[in-house]
Amino acid sequence: MLVVRPAGSADFEALMELAVLSGRGFTSLPEDEPTLRSRLALSEASFQAGVAPPEAWYTLMLEDLETGTVEGVAGVKAGVGLKRPFFSFRVVTLAQSSPTLEMRFDHKALVLVNECAGWSEVGSLFLRPEKRKGGAGRLLAQSRYMLIGIEPQRFAEMVLAELRGWFDEDGRCPFWEHVSHKFFRLDFDQADLMSASTDGQFILDLAPRHPIYTELLPEEARDVIGRVHRDGEAARAMLEREGFRYQGLVDLFDAGPTVACPRDDIRTVRDARRLRVKVGEDAYGEEALISTGEVSRFRAVRAPVLIDGETAILGRDAMDALGVGEGEVVRVKA
């Protein structure tokens, strides 16, 4: 059985392995030991309410209980842009007209903005390639919303997700090469690591202050603005099923799109029910998403459940995986 659980310091080796597998442009999983160890420590403190709620960053691991192997990772950041700006490019339309010529021209442009300060973020979703079928990705993705739904007040009223932008088969990022590199003058990997592991001051220092007219860009750079990486299409589809929508914002480095949704409108947050658990000796009912009812003891699984009024009847294996006993509260999303 697969279970989603809080990350701990003992997960460092597994997290580093996933970071290596994630490849270029996966900013939230840098191949940097101090950054990853710091993230695990922050996650442990967050689950135990050891940091102020807006500063919490919860890291979740997908574990195969039979093998003990960590198969994936995901995260929820309670607040972005609080201690460092959360910059994006907004894709805007600038209208210009000439009464003399009786003509109007609409120009697309990229404008540097810091619009999402204080929003929560779901991200860092990555699975081993061989585990991307069979519902593992869905379990890992939805577990983030189950976590938010336990105590919504820990999170902002708006929740965003950044999707990785387009890279070609050779690992080139057209937007970086033709646009962002002109301002930052670094290798992509170096800028990406600095973005994840520093306070981001270099972005504040070097990012463009004036609109960039997209018509002046090479076609291959224009074409990837707002385009999702081939490995991110499934993640985008899952986000859209939850209610997330494109916001007209793209990443500064790779032009990947930002999607967002009001916290209380996220489907899993909205529809999950709080029920008392009861053990059943056999598998019961239809398979559903089930989580614990406390942040500090968070775990989530997909398992058969029979809902009887305000009671969720679970098999023993599911209850053991969740670490709950009869009469405790669980949250269930059918």
Rank of each mutant, 00 (worst) to 15 (best):
M1T: 15
R5W: 14
R5G: 07
A10Q: 12
A10F: 07
F26E: 08
T27F: 00
P34Y: 12
L36Y: 04
R37G: 02
A49H: 08
P53F: 08
E55K: 14
Y58N: 09
Y58E: 13
T59P: 00
E66R: 10
E71D: 10
E71R: 13
E71T: 03
G72L: 10
A74G: 13
V76S: 07
V76T: 13
A78M: 10
A78W: 03
R84P: 09
F87C: 01
F89I: 12
L94M: 08
S97L: 03
L101D: 06
M103L: 15
F105D: 05
F105G: 00
D106T: 09
H107N: 05
S120L: 05
V122W: 03
S124F: 01
L125R: 06
L125A: 11
L127W: 02
R128S: 04
E130C: 01
K131Y: 06
R132K: 13
K133I: 07
A136M: 02
A141C: 08
A141H: 06
Q142Y: 11
E151T: 11
A156P: 00
M158G: 10
V159M: 01
L160A: 13
E162M: 02
L163W: 02
G165V: 06
E169S: 09
C173T: 06
F175M: 05
E177Y: 08
E177S: 06
V179M: 04
K182F: 12
F184D: 09
R185A: 06
R185M: 09
D187N: 10
D189L: 04
Q190R: 10
Q190Y: 11
D192V: 08
D192Y: 12
D192I: 07
L193R: 14
S195W: 00
S197L: 07
T198A: 09
Q201T: 15
F202E: 00
L204F: 10
L206K: 04
R209Y: 04
R209S: 08
P211E: 11
Y213N: 04
L216I: 01
L216D: 04
E219F: 05
A221S: 09
D223C: 03
I225R: 00
V228T: 12
R230P: 03
D231P: 02
D231S: 12
R236G: 10
R236Y: 12
L239I: 04
E242Q: 14
G243I: 02
F244Q: 02
R245A: 15
L249H: 10
G256P: 07
V259I: 06
C261G: 07
C261D: 03
R270G: 07
R270Y: 10
R273F: 08
R274M: 09
E281N: 13
E286A: 15
A288D: 00
L289G: 02
L289E: 05
L289W: 08
I290H: 10
T292R: 00
G293W: 00
G293C: 12
E294T: 14
S296W: 14
S296A: 15
F298N: 09
I307A: 06
I307C: 13
D308R: 14
G309D: 06
E310L: 10
A318I: 00
M319T: 01
L322H: 05
G323A: 12
E328P: 05
